[in-house]
């Protein structure tokens, strides 16, 4: 409901007949407990000249309202996914950093002190003795809860990625999909990138070094974490990451423009990688 449309009134209430944007807002934000004979009411209210005119205006308003609502819904979803995967990485990094501090500190207090997030989890369960120990154990508890939050975020990313980008998520896995979307600045931007750019997404530092003439051109960015690049023999990796980037780009385009799941895309990638791996030497 917006402040102009009283609940229970028709979508055209207090909308000027020529104002499509206002009409679209009325469609999106209005509400009513019960339907009424809106075509007749709109004509009586002077909003439309007759039934045909009313339906023409309704058509224009519903098309505008629904197009805007779709765009908003989709924009929202891929942005949320990008935030979630970044937050997941932040939690991971911070948990590890604090776990190191905990290990160093605990090492001065306890004989059986260990290292890492797992040790922090164990320490978090113990009863501190005195104010110093209380501080260390409390810090260990923060580490444990950050690690829990990272796990929750990962679960969320895993669920959302296949909603936002079903084909990309099937091919790249949910977490890598989310990272690609985050690096590209959205699913729409990813879908518009040439596959050569997707191939080196996340390797911007190496790419700029190369452009300054200080390094060879990077063969892969974040897609290196994909099993199809990592577990392919080094001399075939260039071909594998080119092939993977090509298919991921197609998947992102299908996800952005149609949203329909196309399992045959995964099969094509599987076949392509199998043939690269069975071949000796790079192209």
């Amino acid at each position: 409901m917006n402040d102009r449309t009283p609940s229970g009134a028709g979508w055209f209430e207090s909308v000027d007949p020529g104002n499509v944007e206002g009409a679209a807002t009325g469609i999106r934000d209005g509400s009513a407990a019960a339907p009424r004979d809106w075509p007749v009411q709109a004509v009586e209210a002077g909003f439309a000249d007759g039934e045909d005119d009313y339906y023409d205006r309704l058509r224009e308003a519903t098309l505008a309202a629904t197009a805007a609502a779709v765009e908003e819904a989709e924009r929202a979803d891929d942005r949320q996914l990008a935030h979630a995967v970044r937050a997941m990485d932040d939690c991971e990094r911070t948990a590890n950093e604090l776990a190191e501090r905990v290990a160093e500190w605990a090492g001065t207090l306890f004989d059986d002190a260990g290292t890492g997030v797992e040790y922090a989890r164990t320490l978090a369960e113990s009863d501190p003795d005195g104010p110093t120990e209380r501080r260390v154990v409390d810090l260990a508890r923060r580490v444990a809860s950050l690690a829990d939050e990272r796990d929750e975020l990962r679960t969320f990313v895993q669920q959302q990625a296949s909603v936002v980008a079903p084909n990309l998520a099937a091919m790249a896995g949910p977490v890598l999909s989310a990272r690609l979307i985050a690096l590209a600045g959205g699913l729409g931007s990813l879908a518009k990138m040439p596959s050569g750019t997707v191939q080196v997404l996340g390797a911007e530092d190496a790419l700029f070094a190369h452009l300054r003439g200080q390094a060879s051109s990077p063969k892969h960015g974040i897609i290196y974490t994909h099993e199809y690049v990592r577990n392919t023999a080094p001399d075939q990796r260039g071909s594998a990451s080119r092939a993977l980037a090509g298919k991921l780009t197609i998947a992102a385009r299908v996800d952005h423009y149609s949203g329909e799941r196309k399992p045959e895309l995964d099969d094509e990638l599987d076949d392509r990688i199998a043939s690269i791996r069975s071949r000796g030497g790079d192209e």
């Binding site: 229970g8 009134a9 509400s31 407990a33 339906y55 629904t66 609502a69 819904a73």
Partner: peptide, 29 residues
């Protein structure tokens, strides 16, 4: 939306069918 653009009297609504009050101000009785 594309289907509706090709038709004069097809009105698309992005709404939840479990919440009719969110489109009863648009759909006639």
């Amino acid at each position: 939306l594309d289907v509706a653009r090709d038709r004069e009297r097809l009105f698309p609504l992005l709404k939840d069918a479990r919440k009719p009050e969110t489109y009863a101000h648009v759909v006639e009785n």
